[in-house]
Design a binder for these strands. Structure first.
Length: 482
RNA sequence: GGCGCCAUCGUCUAGCGGCCCAGGACGUCGCCCUCUCAAGGCGAAGAUCGCGGGUUCGAAUCCCGCUGGCGCUACCA
């Protein structure tokens, strides 16, 4: 293992927009591979078909490439250890599961979701840690056969040793120990035949010869399960490096509720990839303290893993903006022009906006009077604009809060958006008209605009959500009048 | 609740036993430059190094306890 070639990987799930946390971990993995002459691999972890989003995978590829992070092996470029999409590897997991089953380090569990639910509730009520009670672990072979013959759906769980403890080394923190009492009999294979993260991850990392697992801190508590799995298979475990989690201003794990986390947002909002990647490089230390502005190449040359600081860094937009300004000013006039031309006034973008205003203007220069909100950053409606006549301010802000979740969950096209907004109106007892007007105010800053839904589709989900978030934020901080 | 991780200015961080009554950057404020605004230059405010005990001639730095924050606690990753 010591002299095994360096191979690292990033393993995002295609469940929505590419996440800034994914970019952060990708960056660290990329730097690691660069510095040690290793391979950087991209693997798509699409085993959760309930959260799967079709368009997500391509967006992940695009966003990472936009940032300049390129991989040597992956679903799009191939490689010797493919396929690199977990949904195409189910046979491998099936085989791995059978092996565990035959070794007795895993067992079939026929418990219904209802029973598990009830069990958990009882445990919580009794102030016990919610954990699987290992009911099916003691099933006799005949009982298992019977249940199977009856066609009872089952999951496969890992048989965690009843005693002892597992210690593993985190390369950034040292040894970490978990008592087996505190390790749950994790589900490895779901009843739909797809593996859970834990199984797929360990199996793939082994088969893909991953030498170092560099991932976010949230995985520390499941690492003992992974180590136990490597042992159950008789495999050598990789090294583990757990990076600190990016945080919201309130120190909680960075979330779309409180921050723009979509890489699509940063691109559309006019951030340069060099600035974002530079900023990410500032998070959690790693670079010499006297360097503030640096390129990806400079990071590869100077980043030191021993310098990483473990406190979760707050993702502070203010500093990102400052950095972005630095990069913008460093552009030559020609570069700046083409950057603006493509980034703000992109051909495709203008082409979509034009028809929305065409029938509403009398001279060409009125174009911006109507379409300004597509290009501006500082849209913030006044109370006279966003507050419906028959609603109070608190009622309105509450609805705006709901808006965030509703639109987050919606598919970004006209019919889906219309339905989402109308449904929201119904459930909240608002008129559709009032809801549409509120959204119009937040998105466009005005009471009169090009058609709202079409505009939102063109404007994009990431920026629309950001506008709502900023609106909410602004209203919350605004001193209450009266 | 249980388990685990973490803890230096509002934020990102430097510091790895004496050079620190803690340095840099963002943000904030002031001054200069200037037709304006930025940018740029200069300067200021801002951290009893979470708290309490040790160890040591000496601790932000090592140890212990506490507190706090965060994460995990799903047939999500």
């Amino acid at each position: 293992m010591v002299d095994a070639p360096i191979r690292v990987r990033i393993a995002p799930s295609p469940t929505g927009d590419p996440h800034v946390g994914t970019a952060y971990i990708a960056l660290i993995n990329y730097l690691f591979a660069q510095q040690r002459g290793g391979q950087f691999i991209l693997r798509i972890e699409d085993t959760d078909r309930t959260r799967f989003v079709e368009s997500s995978e391509q967006m992940i590829f695009d966003a990472l490439h936009w940032l300049g992070l390129h991989w040597q092996e992956g679903p799009d470029v191939g490689g010797p250890y493919g396929p690199y999409r977990q949904s195409e590897r189910t046979g491998i997991y099936r085989q791995a599961t059978d092996e565990l089953l035959s070794r007795g380090t895993a067992y079939k569990c026929f418990c219904t979701p209802a029973r598990l639910d009830e069990m958990r509730r009882a445990q919580i009520a009794a102030k016990l840690p919610p954990r699987y009670d290992r009911h099916c672990r003691s099933l006799t072979p005949q009982e298992v056969q019977q249940a199977e013959a009856a066609g009872t759906p089952y999951t496969v769980r890992m048989a965690v040793p009843l005693e002892g403890a597992t210690t593993f080394r985190d390369e950034l923190r040292g040894d970490i120990t978990f008592d087996h009492n505190n390790v749950d009999d994790q589900v490895l294979m779901k009843s739909d035949g797809f593996p859970t993260y834990h199984l797929a991850n360990v199996v793939d990392d082994h088969h893909m010869k991953i030498s170092d697992v560099i991932r976010a801190e949230e995985w520390i508590s499941s690492t003992p399960k992974h180590v136990l799995l490597y042992q159950a298979f008789g495999w050598q475990a990789p090294r583990f490096w757990h990076m600190p989690l990016l945080r919201n201003t309130d120190k909680s794990k960075i979330s779309k509720r409180k921050n723009p986390v979509s890489l699509i947002y940063y691109r559309q909002a006019g951030f340069l990839p060099q600035a974002l990647i530079n900023f990410l490089g500032l998070m959690g230390g790693g670079m010499p303290a006297d360097l503030e502005k640096f390129s990806l190449e400079e990071m590869a040359a100077n980043f030191q893993f021993e310098r990483i600081s473990l406190g979760g860094p707050v993702f502070d937009l203010e500093k990102l903006k400052w950095l972005n300004g630095l990069y913008l000013r460093a552009l030559s006039p020609a570069q700046f022009y083409s950057t603006i031309r493509e980034g703000v006034f992109g051909e495709d973008y203008l082409r979509q906006i034009a028809p929305l205003v065409q029938e509403r203007i009398e001279t060409l220069t009125q174009f911006l009077d109507l379409a300004d909100f597509f290009f501006r950053d500082d849209i913030m409606p006044a109370e006279e604009v966003f507050l419906p006549k028959k609603k109070t301010l608190p009622e309105t802000l509450k609805l705006a809060g709901e808006l965030l979740g509703v639109l987050e969950a919606a598919d970004w096209n006209h019919p889906a958006l219309e339905k989402a907004l109308r449904d929201l109106a119904t459930t909240q007892n608002w008129s559709a008209k009032e809801v549409f007007m509120l959204v119009r105010a937040i998105v466009t800053g005005k009471t009169a605009s090009p058609p709202l839904l079409e505009s939102m589709v063109v404007f994009g989900k990431a920026r629309t959500l950001d506008r709502i978030r900023r609106f909410l934020d602004f209203q919350k901080k605004r001193p209450a009048k009266n």
